[in-house]
Nucleic acid binder design. Structure first.
Lengths: 236, 236
DNA sequence: GTTATAAATTGATAATTATCAATTAGATAT
DNA sequence: ATATCTAATTGATAATTATCAATTTATAAC
């Protein structure tokens, strides 16, 4: 594991209060006094692309808030293939299922350089018992991930492969941190996201590039949104 | 709407405490005193097959606990088709998204005769503010629906249509209230569940019937589980 | 029961996608 | 820079599925 701890250990209070993404994250509603309830340190980690935060059925001790970058939640299927269940970005929570169980339900793997805050589950449980301020954000996060799953199911599993990829590109562009570019997943991952083969994903991505609907430089991508939206509608 | 109220209005205390599905449902952890916090009545409704509990973007005032039967959560797509996002059964919650928003995110439609308890959102919010006993069950429910969505995404969107339908039949059989039979959705709904066409769904269901892997009488179905599991593995 | 209506099934064909295989481009290590 | 490995692309073909259309079966209404 190449990940490293950015700050050795700190109480949390000072830094969480000043955190640039606090309004997006789990602790949005916590107040000064609430932070004093924290006993264990909340550490900040930086992961390179392709690293694993945790694995399915692994013992679950931490929840992660994503500060920057992108994470895929992966399930491996009995036949050896894998499916990407969801993509997580800035402000999202990973591993929150551990509040009701002792193991993680997915593999969490970074797609890019990703910075996270690692919160011990026990601290979440303690906060929940002692302050009413965390509960609201937990339900907001829950709802966000549920809604994401719904969009995935309703929009990214219908239509031809071309329509699905066009939809995915628009989704990625609309949810990117950058204004006009976004991270383009590998063809393998596009396949695992949309339940199509790597080859089909590659063919269509290459075709979009030839048609100048998509420009890439390494994994940084830009798209022609209006044209892709037409493809989703018309399907040609 | 043919639905009718089973009980005109009642305080909730007596009946919720004796409810046969209470251990499954939202109020599992509530104690005698907590029920006294309820001000509005919790009414019991019975719906016939094909009725609508609520519609997407409808003003959300109620959450529903399913006592018996089955409900589909539906999203209509821009092109006029629809997708079934999830199936809800005994003990599941419908409309819980309204805790963080003012509208429902799906259409909820009964597939069979279905009995529900209708809980005003305000009561849930009030309970949450005044007792810590609801929160735990809310997260349990949240996790259950998230997990269901994950299973859907990872298992029911991969493989050939035949494998997907075999998977769906096993899922329905394993989650049925009855020991050895289950409710078989219409071919339209099977299509909307698995993102395949009605015709493909019909062809495969008919084939399974010819092969005696599936027996139906009206919409009551029985399956040969071991054989269907082989089909999922082998795909033929 | 008979008729009307909706759902399920089946057929023929075209379109889409998976599969297997090879090649090219890109990234990493030496 | 060169060798090595991995990812992306492309081709040919078979398999799967959608589409359009017709027919049969089931359900509901009278």
């Amino acid at each position: 594991m190449k990940s490293f701890e950015i700050n050795q250990a700190w109480g949390g209070t000072e830094k969480c209060l000043k955190c640039p993404i606090r309004n997006l994250a789990l602790f949005a509603d916590l107040q000064q006094a609430d932070f004093n309830l924290l006993h264990q340190p909340i550490n900040e980690f930086s992961f390179e692309a392709g690293e694993s935060l945790y694995t399915e059925k692994g013992t679950a001790k931490f929840v992660y808030t994503i500060r920057s970058g992108m994470i895929k939640l992966v399930r491996y299927l009995p036949n050896g293939s894998y499916r990407i269940i969801r993509l997580l970005r800035k402000g999202d929570l990973a591993g929150i299922e551990t509040l009701n169980g002792s193991t993680y339900l997915h593999h969490a793997i970074t797609l890019q350089k990703t910075e996270v805050c690692r919160i011990p589950v026990e601290e979440i449980e303690a906060l929940n018992s002692n302050t009413p301020h965390l509960y609201k954000q937990l339900t907001v996060q829950w709802q966000k991930s549920q809604n994401d799953a719904d969009i995935w199911l309703s929009e990214l599993t219908v239509g031809t492969s071309k329509q699905r990829i066009a939809n995915l590109l628009l989704y990625l562009a609309n949810n990117s941190s950058e204004e006009d570019s976004f991270y383009l997943p590998s063809r393998d991952d596009i396949g695992a996201l949309l339940a199509i083969t790597t080859e089909t994903a590659s063919r269509i991505v290459a075709e979009f590039k030839r048609q100048s609907l998509l420009h890439t430089e390494h994994q940084v991508a830009q798209i022609n949104k209006p044209e892709l939206m037409l493809i989703i509608k018309a399907g040609n």
